[in-house]
Simulated scan of single mutants.
Amino acid sequence: MDTFLSVAFSFPTVVFSVLLSVAIVYWLISLIGLGDVDADGDIDASGDFSGLMVTLGLQGVPLPLVLTLLFLWAWLISYFADLVFGVLVPEGLLHWLYGVAVIAIALIASVFCTSVIIRPLRPLFRRAYLPPLQKRIIGTACVVTSTTVTEKKGRAEALLDGVHLVLQVRSHTPLAHRERAVLIEHIPDKNAWWVVPESEFLAGHSAG
């Protein structure tokens, strides 16, 4: 037990011990009903974060689950690496450099391990959560929060059932900051949404 605690709470493993502890506390709070797990995965990721998740193969499941698995794998890799090789590295600057290297390797390896684990889980979350969300969000108004919205990039905010969402959006008609638009179609491979200017959407409905 002394060896376990010594390794778990010493650099570099302590970094992941703290992160994993935060994740465990989050799940405990969720289990007793004081919190709410984001069942819609990474749909509310802003900026280029959702694109990074897709690139790393970490999309399609709730973000808290992804982070928990990342922290768990990184902790395991860091713990056993330090347990086996830590005693061979002298204290001082060399030990800190060794610790930074272990953290980097653990993070890279944990991304790979997590992407493999969540791959078979994606269909479960897609069937359980994504279709209802897609149906409810179509026709919802949003406000552009990025500098502009084009066919290649853009971001907007929307309210759905009282929940604030930050979404990646695309538009054939360029939109400016704070301009209002309406979500009309989901783009699955980009985790984004096609939008049209609100005035154009309303005019189309009026004409119909």
Score class of each variant (00 low, 15 high):
Leu67Asp: 01
Gln168Glu: 13
Lys152Phe: 13
Pro197Leu: 07
Leu76Lys: 02
Leu76Phe: 10
Asp48His: 15
His177Asp: 05
Leu63Glu: 05
Ser6Asn: 07
Leu183Glu: 11
Trp75Glu: 06
Ala203Phe: 04
Gly60Cys: 12
Gly47Thr: 06
Ser78Leu: 14
Ala207Val: 13
Phe201Gln: 00
Phe49Cys: 05
Gln168Asp: 09
Pro120Ser: 11
Trp194Ala: 11
Ile77Ala: 05
Ile32Gln: 11
Met1Tyr: 07
Phe85Asn: 06
Gly208Cys: 09
Val22Asp: 08
Gly41His: 06
Ile77Gln: 01
Thr55Ala: 15
Arg170Cys: 09
Leu94Met: 05
Val22Arg: 02
Asp82Phe: 04
Pro188Ser: 05
Pro90Tyr: 08
Leu65Lys: 06
Ser50Trp: 01
Asp40Ala: 14
Pro62Glu: 11
Ser17Met: 04
Gly51Lys: 09
Gly57Thr: 11
Ser110Asp: 03
Glu185Val: 04
Leu20Met: 13
Ile184Met: 09
Val25Met: 09
Leu56Asn: 03
His95Tyr: 15
Arg127Lys: 10
Val87Ala: 15
Leu160Lys: 07
Val37Phe: 09
Phe71Asp: 01
Asp189Gln: 14
Met53Phe: 05
Phe71His: 13
Asn191His: 15
Ser206Glu: 13
Pro12Thr: 01
Leu97Glu: 07
Val25Asn: 02
Gln59Ile: 08
Glu151Ser: 15
Gly139Phe: 12
Ser50Gln: 05
Phe80Glu: 13
Val18Cys: 05
Val144Asp: 01
Leu19Pro: 03
Glu157Trp: 00
Pro90Asp: 01
Ala23Ile: 03
Glu200Met: 08
Ala81Gln: 08
Ala176Trp: 04
Pro188Gly: 06
Glu157Met: 04
Arg119Glu: 07
Val149Asn: 08
Tyr129Gln: 12
Val144His: 02
Ala181Glu: 11
Ile187Cys: 12
Ile32Gly: 07
Met53Asn: 03
Ala141Gly: 12
Phe11Leu: 11
Ile118Pro: 06
Leu88Phe: 07
Val18Thr: 06
Gln168Gly: 15
Gly99Cys: 01
Ser206Tyr: 07
His164Ile: 06
His95Gly: 05
Val111His: 03
Pro12Gln: 04
Thr55Ile: 12
Ser17Glu: 01
Leu5Arg: 01
His164Asn: 15
Pro120Leu: 03
Leu165Gly: 00
Thr147Ala: 13
Tyr98Ser: 10
Val18Ser: 02
Val182Asn: 08
Val37His: 04
Lys135Ser: 15
Phe125Cys: 05
Asp161Glu: 15
Gly204Leu: 13
Val163His: 15
Trp73Phe: 15
Gly86Gln: 04
Thr13Ser: 02
Pro62Val: 14
Glu200Gly: 01
Pro120Tyr: 03
Leu34Trp: 09
Ile117Asn: 01
Phe9Leu: 09
Thr173Lys: 00
Val14Tyr: 00
Arg170Thr: 09
Gly204Glu: 14
Ile77Thr: 09
Leu70Glu: 00
Leu165Ala: 00
Ile184Tyr: 10
Val7Leu: 03
Ser46Glu: 12
Thr148Met: 07
His177Leu: 11
Val102Cys: 02
Pro174Ile: 02
Leu88Gln: 10
His172Gln: 15
Leu69Ile: 10
Val144Thr: 12
Thr68Ile: 10
Val14Pro: 00
Leu159Asn: 09
Ala45Ser: 08
Ile138Asp: 11
Val116Arg: 11
Pro174Cys: 11
Asp82Cys: 13
Gln134Met: 12
Val196Asp: 11
Tyr79Arg: 14
